[in-house]
Amino acid sequence: MSTDIIFLIVGNQRLGTGHIYRSIIYRKELTVLGFKCTTYYLPGDDLVKKIYEQYNMSAEQLDYLNSNIIKDSYSNVYILDILDTSKEFVCMLKEKNKVISFEDLGPGSEQADLVINALYKQKEIKANHYFGHNYVELREEFDNIFYKVKRKVKNVLITFGGTDPTNSTLLVVSSIYDYCISNSININIVNGPGYQYLNSLDSFPKINIRCNIDNMAKTMAQNDIAFCSAGRTIYELASIGVPSIVVTHNERENNHLFATQEYGFFNLGLSKFLEKKRVLKTYIKLVEDYQLRMHISNIMLENNLKEGKKRVLKLILKVINEK
């Protein structure tokens, strides 16, 4: 009997789109290897279907937490990208299937066959649990591109994920706009498909706004400094060496271990507590210190992030092939 791979994922205005894009990355890889893959998303998470369609892929709406389709399935491999899981749900799946879970700090993670937590620090060694940046996945567009630090900053990138639920974009733009205009620095904003605050930027006529771009790696490499949240974007920026300032959306993001000075990031913490003058001060410090930007870029590039997808895929295939 052939093994089907079933992705259960979340993706919405509050939780962002990182889970969606990760499922697309691994579904593509597993499909190429000959596996039949299906993706289910919860009612209300229509952003999943929208993004999947952009990649010419299908996803089906299903209340998978309560569905008999899920309860009655057997001999499949479930890949969960739904954040923290319950023990009851994972045990139900494991009665007749195998379970792999991403970014799962819930009690259900103890029951899974494999857990990948690239964003979080390992508090204790657990069998089949893999933590840290060695297990982050990057899209193919990041494989062969790097940023070269320039003496003069000409472009700044502001990108806060697929939804930017706290509208950190507005916070940053309003903090640095006057300085950038006075110093001939282009402000380049990349919004995701779930960003709902475009009208809030109407007061800043000299900004460049793009949405759903085809090649994010190329766009990142064209900018000298970036502002972002603490999701998957930090790994993308670090993989090509763009000096970056992090503003987090929520407390969970504050626990993401990679968005720290140790790995080359200025982390300003939660947006709701952040003052504009601190944003501007940190930004000016980076703009005016070429040697600091060089040092930060070098720190970022010391991490071999571009091999993470291969590492994770190898672990997934090991679970699939175990009898």
Results as ranks from 00 to 15, higher is better:
Gly18Ser: 07
Tyr55Pro: 03
Thr233Arg: 01
Cys91Lys: 14
Ser101Lys: 02
Pro193Val: 14
Ser168Tyr: 01
Glu253Leu: 09
Ile79Gln: 01
Ser244Val: 01
Glu253Val: 09
Phe102Ser: 02
Glu60Asp: 13
Met216Lys: 04
Glu302Phe: 09
Thr219Arg: 14
Met220Lys: 01
Thr282Leu: 07
Asp178Val: 07
Gly308Met: 03
Asn128Pro: 01
Cys211Tyr: 07
Val247Ser: 02
Val312Lys: 00
Lys309Met: 13
Ser86Trp: 10
Lys272Glu: 13
Asn56Cys: 11
Tyr40Ala: 08
Ile189Met: 05
Ser67Pro: 02
Leu93Glu: 00
Ser174Glu: 15
Leu80Ile: 12
Phe7Ser: 00
Gln122Cys: 14
Val247Asp: 04
Pro43Ser: 13
Glu124Gly: 00
Ile316Phe: 12
His19Phe: 10
Leu157Phe: 09
Leu280Tyr: 06
Pro165Gly: 04
Lys98Pro: 01
Asn188Ala: 08
Thr163Tyr: 05
Glu236Leu: 06
Glu110Phe: 14
Asn267Ser: 08
Arg311Val: 05
Leu280Ala: 04
Lys50Tyr: 14
Glu253Thr: 10
Gly11Ile: 07
Val319Asp: 03
Lys206Met: 15
Glu88Gly: 02
Leu301Thr: 04
Asp202Phe: 15
Asp214Tyr: 11
Leu170Pro: 01
Gly34Phe: 08
Gly18Val: 06
Lys94Pro: 01
Thr163Ile: 02
Thr166Trp: 05
Ser229Ala: 15
Gly231Val: 00
Leu83Cys: 13
Tyr130Arg: 11
Gly308Glu: 07
Tyr197Asp: 10
Lys94Asp: 02
Val279His: 00
Ser244His: 07
Gly264His: 01
Asp72Lys: 11
Phe266Met: 03
Ile158Ser: 01
Ser239Trp: 05
Leu280His: 08
Phe102Tyr: 15
Gly194Trp: 07
Leu47Pro: 06
Thr159Arg: 02
Arg232Asn: 14
Lys50Leu: 14
Met216Pro: 09
Asn250Thr: 12
Ser23Met: 01
Pro43Asp: 13
Ile181Leu: 11
Glu288Lys: 08
Glu53Asp: 13
Asn12Ser: 12
Asp81Glu: 10
Ile100Asp: 02
Asn298Gln: 13
Ile234Thr: 09
Ala259Asn: 05
Gly161Gln: 04
Tyr135Arg: 03
Val312Tyr: 02
Gln261Ile: 12
Ile24Gly: 03
Lys98Ile: 07
Thr233Ala: 12
Val312Phe: 05
Asn76Ala: 10
Gln122Ser: 11
Ile213Tyr: 11
Asp104Thr: 05
Tyr21Trp: 10
Thr38Asn: 06
Lys272Tyr: 15
Val32Leu: 13
Ser244Pro: 04
Asn128Leu: 03
Ile296Phe: 00
Met294Asp: 00
Asn66His: 14
Tyr135Ile: 11
Ala230Val: 03
Phe102Ala: 06
Met220Pro: 02
Gly162Pro: 03
Ser75His: 11
Asn208Tyr: 11
Asp202Cys: 13
